[in-house]
C-alpha cells in the first residue's frame, strides 16, 4: 500500500523538480561555458564536489529514481499476474525500498570515492578551467 503512493510521489517529483533541473542543466550547457559554470556554481563547491543544494537535489532525485524504478518493476510483475499473495506482495514492497536505498548509497559512495581518489584536479584530461 505505502509503496504505491511512493511510486506516485517519486514520479510526480521527478516530473517537476527533476525536469526543471534537467532543462536548466541542458539549457546552460547549450548556452555556453560561462552559463554552464554558473549553473554548476549553484550546485557545487570549488573542488567540483556537490554543495548542500547539490547533495539534496542529487541524492533526492537518484533515490526517487531508484524507488520509482523498483516500484515500476513491481508494477510489471503484478501486471503479469504474479506476486498477489499477501506475503510475497508485502516482501516485494519492502524489497523495493531496501534496494532503492542500497542502489542510491552505492552510487553516491562510488561518486564520493572517485572524487577522493581523483584528488586535486591534477589528472583532469583537459585544461583545468580556473574560476
Amino acid at each position: 500500500m505505502t509503496v504505491s503512493i511512493l511510486h506516485r510521489v517519486t514520479g510526480s517529483g521527478m516530473a517537476t523538480v527533476g525536469v526543471i533541473v534537467f532543462l536548466w542543466w541542458l539549457g546552460a550547457l547549450a548556452a555556453g561555458e560561462r552559463d554552464y559554470a554558473r549553473f554548476m556554481d549553484l550546485l557545487t563547491v570549488k573542488s567540483g564536489a556537490p554543495n548542500i543544494a547539490g547533495y539534496i537535489l542529487g541524492i533526492g532525485l537518484t533515490l526517487s529514481f531508484f524507488q520509482h524504478m523498483m516500484t515500476g518493476i513491481r508494477h510489471f510483475v503484478m501486471d503479469a499476474g504474479a506476486a498477489f499473495e499477501l506475503k510475497a506482495n508485502k516482501s516485494f514492497a519492502v524489497l523495493t525500498v531496501v534496494v532503492s536505498v542500497l542502489l542510491t548509497a552505492a552510487l553516491w559512495g562510488y561518486i564520493t570515492y572517485d572524487q577522493l581518489k581523483a584528488a586535486p584536479a591534477g589528472n583532469a584530461p583537459i585544461a583545468v578551467e580556473t574560476k
Binding site: 554552464y36 557545487t44 524504478m69 515500476g72 518493476i73 562510488y110 581523483a118 584536479a121 578551467e129
Partner: peptide, 30 residues
C-alpha cells in the same frame, strides 16, 4: 508501459554515463 521500459534502459544509461565521466566540467560534458 512501453515508455516505462525505454525509460528504464535510457535512464540507467544516463546515470552510468554521467558517473563515468571524469568530471562534470563544461569541456567534458560538452
Amino acid at each position: 508501459r512501453l515508455t516505462a521500459g525505454s525509460n528504464l534502459l535510457l535512464m540507467l544509461w544516463l546515470i552510468v554515463s554521467l558517473v563515468r565521466l571524469p568530471e562534470l566540467s563544461y569541456g567534458v560534458v560538452q
